[in-house]
């Protein structure tokens, strides 16, 4: 009769390879996080079979709680489009609901690129002067700033030139009379 522990070890090894292939080839990031958590549990049991309980404890503690958490956060963050509304009139909110022209426009844009729209009108960030808009864009995670030109009544959307989303937004805004898209020139990133 073969050694049961050895059989288990081989079965887990094969399972590990299959899971690694699944993680590499799968398309949905949400499923991959669950697979990664299970993957680290399987490796932890293999460490125990390899006579290394110390390593297994470390792997279980880190690989099943902290690593999936940071993956979940970073994946949910890379689906967000953060908009700062400095105009604060019926561009976004009309009749106490999200039915303004700008909201519908932005919603169409984000749905098209499978992003999640997040609009904030934080008092502290909005009270900063217009000259600091570029700094605001670079230092925080805000992707788009909405301001209103008092003279012409146009709404100006400001964003980073480096972002590929701003190019697409420009293309889309051509059909709208009242929207103008402005991009900031790049400064050195990460300097």
């Amino acid at each position: 009769m073969p050694d049961m522990l050895e059989v288990t070890a081989y079965a887990l090894q094969v399972l590990l390879i299959l899971m690694a292939i699944a993680i590499v080839t799968h398309k949905n990031n949400g499923t991959i996080i669950i697979l990664i958590a299970v993957f680290s549990l399987v490796t932890a049991s293999l460490y125990v079979i390899n006579k290394a309980p110390d390593v297994a404890i470390a792997e279980v503690a880190i690989g099943s709680a902290i690593i999936p958490l940071i993956y979940v956060i970073s994946i949910s963050r890379q689906r967000e489009f953060i908009v700062l509304d400095k105009a604060m009139d019926d561009f976004i909110i009309s009749d106490n609901s999200f039915t303004g022209v700008g909201y519908i426009f932005l919603k169409r844009f984000t749905d098209f690129y499978h992003l999640e729209l997040n609009i904030s009108n934080d008092v502290r960030l909005c009270s900063l002067g217009a000259g600091r808009d570029q700094l605001l864009c670079e230092e925080t995670n805000v992707d788009l700033i909405i301001t209103k030109d008092e003279d012409t009544g146009k709404y100006i959307l400001k964003g980073k030139e480096s972002s590929i989303l701003m190019n697409k937004l420009k293309q889309m805004a051509k059909d709208y009379e009242m929207i103008e898209v402005v991009t900031f020139k790049d400064r050195d990133f990460g300097d």
Binding site: P53, D54, A56, I57, A58, A61, I62, A65, I66
Partner: peptide, 14 residues
Amino acid sequence: SPGGGFQGGAIVAT
């Protein structure tokens, strides 16, 4: 016993 600073620290953090 199996364990030590690194592993225990990870569990405390969890």
